[in-house]
Simulated assay, not measured.
Amino acid sequence: MTYSQTNDSGSDTIIASFLTNCTPTIIPTSDDPAEQIELAETDWTTRLTSPIVPELKDLLTPALETYKLSATHLNNFLDVSRGGPQNFLLNNLLHFPSAKNSAAAYGTAIHSSLQQAHCSFSADHQLPSTEQILQFFQKSLESQHLPADDFQLYLDKGKSALTAFLNAKSSDFHDTDLAELDFSNQGVIIDNARLTGKLDVVDIDKQNKTIFVTDYKTGKPAHSWKGSADYEKIKLHKYRQQLMFYQLLVEHSRDYGNFTFTGGRLQFVEPDMKTGDILSLEDTFSREELSEFTQLIEIIWRKITTLDLPDISGYSADYKGMLQFEKDLLAGEI
């Protein structure tokens, strides 16, 4: 088992979460010039992202003229543990292809099956049976074209998780819920920043003019917003910002701007491994929090649209580094 202490830019990397309770024995690699030359020849990403040449700016100008910022793009820009702005440039602006791993394909299939369940309930005013929803899941997973072993593993995992989830949470489904509500054509603009996004489930009370948002999450459920391992802290921090982003989408949208956002929920689909419980986390946000987050969005928007992508090599690739990066952006220090 190998572990790199720093990434290519020299920033610290995060040790795997399942190793955080032990101290690994580090065996340094040799500083062989031949290895360094090979790395320099194969490190193609640095040549694209540092520095950004005029030709690249010309290439991206048409895309930036119609660009809209999503919560995912925002999180990719801020997450210094995964490359931050340079990763955002490669994946979200240049759209370099990457293979979807089996876990991501599984998550896609879970979301698709729950979306179909909500849409069917809305149309028929009757929630599909658990067996029908499991069929939705299987068909969606089949469309992901996983290797045979992975397919069977995630098929069994998904059927078990969805069965437990529906047994515990089927009463939370309502035929008035809107699934995959798309804000791409809602004209959401904050300052000059154009925002977009899709919300998993939106509970709209038209009589009282309120909106509550639920976002489904696969993977290990969390018991609180604090998190224990560094990876979990980053994940939950991004999730919370995602819910704040959704509130801003709602409040600045054409059709729902006169509704009151009453809160957001992370709904974990998979049961807790120890207790078997289906967990969720809810939160609301103060005007002070939203004001600061809005300022952060405006700063990131300017950075993206001018291709002024900050160098993050001085930040540790962890939760602390991510918070410091956000702080420095808000302070105008980078």
Rank of each mutant, 00 (worst) to 15 (best):
Thr2Leu: 14
Tyr3Asn: 03
Ser4Val: 01
Gly10Arg: 04
Ser11Cys: 08
Ile15His: 02
Ser17Asn: 07
Thr20Met: 09
Asn21Pro: 02
Thr23Cys: 05
Thr25Gly: 03
Thr25Lys: 13
Ile27Ser: 06
Thr29Gly: 11
Ile37Gly: 01
Thr42Leu: 14
Asp43Gln: 06
Thr46Val: 12
Leu48Asn: 07
Pro51Glu: 08
Thr61Leu: 14
Ala63Arg: 15
Glu65Arg: 14
Thr66Val: 12
Lys68Ile: 00
Ser70Tyr: 03
Asn87Tyr: 12
Leu89Phe: 10
Asn91Phe: 08
Leu93Thr: 06
Leu93Trp: 12
His95Met: 13
His95Leu: 15
Phe96Ile: 14
Ala99Leu: 11
Thr108Pro: 01
His111Val: 08
Ala117Tyr: 00
His118Asn: 11
Ser120His: 04
Phe121Asn: 03
Asp124Asn: 12
Gln126Leu: 11
Leu127Cys: 07
Asp149Ala: 14
Leu155Lys: 10
Gly158Phe: 10
Lys159Asp: 05
Phe165Leu: 14
Lys169Met: 13
Ser170Asp: 05
Thr176Glu: 09
Thr176Tyr: 14
Asp177Ser: 13
Leu178His: 13
Glu180Met: 04
Asp182Gln: 10
Ser184Asp: 13
Asn185Thr: 09
Gln186Met: 06
Thr196Pro: 05
Gly197Lys: 02
Asp200Cys: 03
Val201Cys: 07
Val202Asn: 00
Ile204His: 00
Lys206Asp: 13
Ile211Arg: 00
Asp215Gln: 15
Tyr216Ile: 08
Ala229His: 05
Ala229Phe: 00
Asp230Asn: 11
Tyr231Met: 04
Lys233His: 05
Leu236Val: 04
Gln241Asp: 10
Gln242Glu: 15
Leu249Met: 06
Asp255Trp: 00
Tyr256Asn: 04
Phe261Ser: 05
Arg265Ala: 09
Phe268Ser: 04
Val269Ala: 06
Glu270Lys: 08
Lys274Leu: 14
Thr275Trp: 04
Gly276Phe: 06
Ile278Asn: 07
Leu279Cys: 12
Glu282Ala: 10
Glu282Val: 09
Ser291Asp: 09
Gln295Leu: 06
Leu296Asn: 03
Ile297Gln: 03
Ile299Arg: 13
Ile300Gly: 01
Ile312Met: 08
Ser313Asp: 00
Asp318Leu: 04
Tyr319Phe: 15
Lys320His: 10
Leu323Pro: 05
